[in-house]
């Protein structure tokens, strides 16, 4: 039953056994092709396993498009260094801490340091671990390290 598959799936998620997560999400999706939890688990597992090309394929081939797929797609494109496409995809996603962090990383790679720093400043109250490492990097690259 679906419940049993999700129980096993959860065990593999807790163990960070990403190949098995993909295997069991595929089993769930064979029964319930539009299951949002299974779709999301599959894409996350592929990303966590650094299989960004497969994650993009999973997003493209899914009949159901989830709210956060634009973010996942943008992240995969960023990993492939397709930075303009990644920004385009991010524009389709509601802005939140995650999307803003990714936007910063894309802008940094594009050399748009001032825009990057502006967003890090907006994120300052959101308590992202180690964010100062990236914001300092952007300040250094912008020649604004005295800030």
């Amino acid at each position: 039953a679906l419940e049993d598959l999700f129980t096993t799936l959860n065990r593999h998620i807790q163990a960070s056994a990403f190949d098995n997560v993909v295997k069991f999400t595929d089993q769930i999706l064979a029964i319930a092709p539009d299951d949002e939890d299974a779709l999301r688990c599959k894409v996350v597992a592929l990303i966590k396993n650094d299989h960004v090309e497969d994650a993009l394929s999973a997003i493209k081939s899914s009949r159901k498009q989830l709210d956060d797929f634009h973010f996942f797609k943008a992240y995969c494109l960023y990993r492939q260094n397709k930075l303009d496409e990644a920004l385009e995809s991010l524009k389709r996603q509601a802005r939140n801490d995650e999307t803003m962090l990714l936007e910063c990383q894309i802008l940094y790679r594009l050399g748009k340091m001032d825009a990057c720093i502006d967003i890090y400043q907006k994120l300052q109250n959101s308590k992202v671990d180690n964010m100062e490492i990236n914001s300092v990097a952007a300040l250094v690259m912008a020649g604004r390290s005295s800030e």
């Binding site: 799936l9 949002e36 990303i47 992202v128 490492i133 990236n134």
Partner: peptide
């Protein structure tokens, strides 16, 4: 060049599937 971390990767999380089990 200074070190940059992939903080976006850290933000990507599995959904809570407790209620599906």
């Amino acid at each position: 060049n200074p070190i940059v971390l992939d903080l976006a990767y850290n933000m990507i999380e599995f959904p809570d599937i407790e209620n599906r089990m």
